[in-house]
Structure formats: structure tokens, C-alpha cells
């Protein structure tokens, strides 16, 4: 598989980069690690005229603490550097675990956090060779008007497989995005759209510049689990992140599941059960049952909808027991 031809641009500064993107309109794709984009380009599912490489932009490659103590992670920080950073491994061990679960060591050395958040959605019928796709008939994503995953659907149902977003959503991180003469921050919980073909709220010419994890999320009892066929390196069948954030006296429980739909799913009703009843045995079992019916999922990427519901129930149970154990341990230590 060869890469298709394209024009390669490497801006020297963030300002120049935003200008290039503004001028290129829809013709350009941003590349940081390249582990996602280049694979899709080899498969011929994406064929941009221009590739704007942001890998070497130093403005986007650091991990810093702002004056309020929030941790700011540049979009081009590699997953390896992120997982090795003492700030992350000590204060947000759950994020460390999620980052370590992505790909292999090689991929983590190349892939970046910004890239993982903006990961292209994937689908059984879409991530195939060109001939395969054409034989099946073009779908919403490839210029047609059908969805092979859910026949009759008016939109694309490709799956969001990012591993890190479940944790970032549970920790209530912010995504800082920029375009020429404009910048804004978006809570990551509002960053995704439930549409496989356009699954983020990023506008044309806009890039993710950094991800900010609030200081209030430090040392939060939290848990992350990923289920995958091949333990060493694989996309998830389902991944889950949960955190119990202290909010005054009461705890604010957040549970997020991904790899089951086009956007990560926040399990609000499930979390509500725990917030009302605490981590009692029967509340945990009830919450896990609730998760099963709360998620919307489909048969795509690695398993049937039925199996995904079953696995989500198990995952919810495991993260809740995990958080309960962590809190018990902390209480014993104190």
C-alpha cells in the first residue's frame, strides 16, 4: 500500500499553521503523530490535497501547570511522554493507565494526545480496501447515501475508538481549540457529536491546541478499563472511565463508555443511582443493570450489540467496585 500523492506543509509556528489551514479550507488535513491519518490515507479512505504537519510545533508539545494549578497538555505531546510525565502518573494515574492502553510502545512513541482525541471514527464497512468498499456500495462516509452498519439509517454509524477520552471526560477536562484570529475552550463532554462522519464540534480551519485537566480532578478516585481482543495492541471492544469527583460534601459520579457508538456515552442515569445510594452492593448491581439499557449501541467493530450491552454491564460493575476499593483503601490509610 502506497500513500497517495499530496502537498506537504510544515509550518514553523502555530500562527503560520492556522493561516495555512485557513487558506486550505477543506483540502487540508492536520497531521501530528500520523499513526491514524497515514493508515487511512493508505487505505484510500481519506485523500487530502494537503497535509499540514504540526508535529514539530514546540508551542503544542509541552505539559505545564497554569497559575491556578490546572494541568495543560499540548496537543502534540506524544502518548509516551505523557504517560512518563510525573505530573500525570502521580496525580492522574487513571489517565496514565488509559494512555498506556493505546496501541503498542511504537505507536505511543509517535501518536499524540490531540490525535487520539480527534481519532477518525472506524467501521467494519468503511475501514476496508477501496475495492472492498466499492463492491459493497458507497456509504455516507464515502460519498454514498446508505449505512451498512444500520440499514436505512440517514447518518454514519462508525465507532469512536479513542481510549483516552473516557478518562478525560470523567475528569471533566477542557479542550482548547484555535483557528485564525479565534480561540475557544470546549468542555470535552461537549466536544463529540453522535455522527460517525462528523464526530467533533471542530469547525473548518480549527485545531486542538491543548487539553486542560482541572486541578479539582487531582487525586480523584477513578478507574479505567479497556476490553480488547488482542491484549498487546488493539482497538477496544469497549472502554470505560469513571471518576468520583468531590463536589462539596457530596460526590459527583461520572461514568463514560466508548467504542460502542459514534460518540462516547456518558451514563447519567447509572451515575445517579450511585450518587443517591452510595457504593452499596445492591446499588452497584442495580447501576450496572441500568447501564445496559442506558447505552445506545450497534453491531459494529468486533462484536454484536448484545455482547456490547453485556460487556458494558460487567465493566460498570468492575469500575464501581474499583472505585469503592480505592476509597476504602484511602480511608484505612487516613
Amino acid at each position: 500500500m502506497r500513500l497517495p500523492q499530496f502537498e506537504y506543509l510544515r509550518p514553523d509556528s502555530l500562527k503560520e499553521c492556522l493561516l495555512m489551514l485557513e487558506e486550505s479550507n477543506t483540502d487540508a488535513r492536520v497531521m501530528s503523530g500520523g499513526t491514524g491519518l497515514l493508515v487511512n490515507m493508505k487505505h484510500g479512505v481519506i485523500y487530502p490535497k494537503r497535509v499540514v504537519s504540526i508535529k514539530s510545533l514546540s508551542e503544542l508539545s509541552s505539559i505545564t501547570k497554569d497559575s491556578e494549578g490546572n494541568v495543560q497538555i499540548g496537543a502534540c505531546v506524544t502518548l509516551s511522554n505523557l504517560s512518563k510525565h510525573p505530573l500525570i502518573s502521580q496525580k492522574f494515574p487513571v489517565l496514565h493507565n488509559a494512555v498506556r492502553s493505546v496501541g503498542s510502545m511504537h505507536i505511543r512513541n509517535m501518536a499524540t494526545l490531540g490525535g487520539n482525541i480527534c481519532l477518525e471514527t472506524r467501521c467494519w464497512y468503511y475501514n476496508q480496501s477501496r475495492q472492498w468498499r466499492q463492491a459493497k456500495g458507497l456509504c455516507h462516509r464515502t460519498g454514498g447515501s446508505v449505512c451498512h452498519a444500520i440499514s436505512g439509517s440517514k447518518r454514519c454509524h462508525a465507532i469512536n475508538s479513542s481510549d483516552t477520552v473516557v478518562v478525560l471526560m470523567a475528569l471533566d477536562a477542557l479542550v482548547y481549540v484555535m483557528k485564525k484570529d479565534q480561540e475557544r475552550s470546549i468542555p470535552i463532554r461537549e466536544f463529540f457529536k453522535d455522527n460517525g462522519a462528523h464526530n467533533t464540534v471542530l469547525e473548518e480551519g480549527e485545531i486542538v491546541a491543548s487539553i486542560v485537566i482541572p486541578k479539582t480532578a487531582e487525586f480523584t478516585p477513578a478507574k479505567y478499563i479497556k476490553i480488547q481482543h488482542r491484549q498487546g495492541i488493539d482497538f477496544a471492544i469497549a472502554s470505560i472511565g469513571a471518576a468520583l469527583k468531590r463536589n462539596g460534601k457530596a460526590g459527583e459520579m461520572t461514568i463514560v463508555v466508548n467504542s460502542i457508538a459514534s460518540a462516547p456515552v456518558m451514563l447519567k442515569k447509572t451515575s445517579q443511582i450511585i450518587m443517591e445510594s452510595g457504593f452499596k452492593e445492591d446499588a452497584i448491581l442495580k447501576a450496572a443493570k441500568e447501564a445496559r439499557s442506558e447505552i445506545g449501541t450497534l453491531t459494529n467493530l468486533f462484536s454484536s450489540a448484545g455482547y456490547k450491552r453485556q460487556i458494558v454491564e460487567v465493566l460498570v460493575r468492575r469500575v464501581l467496585y474499583g472505585i469503592k476499593d480505592e476509597m476504602d483503601l484511602r480511608r484505612d490509610k487516613a
Partner: peptide, 22 residues
């Protein structure tokens, strides 16, 4: 596609995949 590791080389001390590096 970055799955098999047969193209691994070391760049600046880190193992990387030369099939996904321009």
C-alpha cells in the same frame, strides 16, 4: 499499518514505525 512492528527503527532513542513516518 502500524500493527506488526517489522519496520521498527530507532529515532532519537525511541522505537518508531518507519512505515508510518514520512
Amino acid at each position: 499499518m502500524g500493527t506488526c512492528g517489522a519496520c521498527t527503527v530507532i529515532m532519537d532513542g525511541q522505537a518508531i514505525l518507519s512505515c508510518l513516518t514520512l
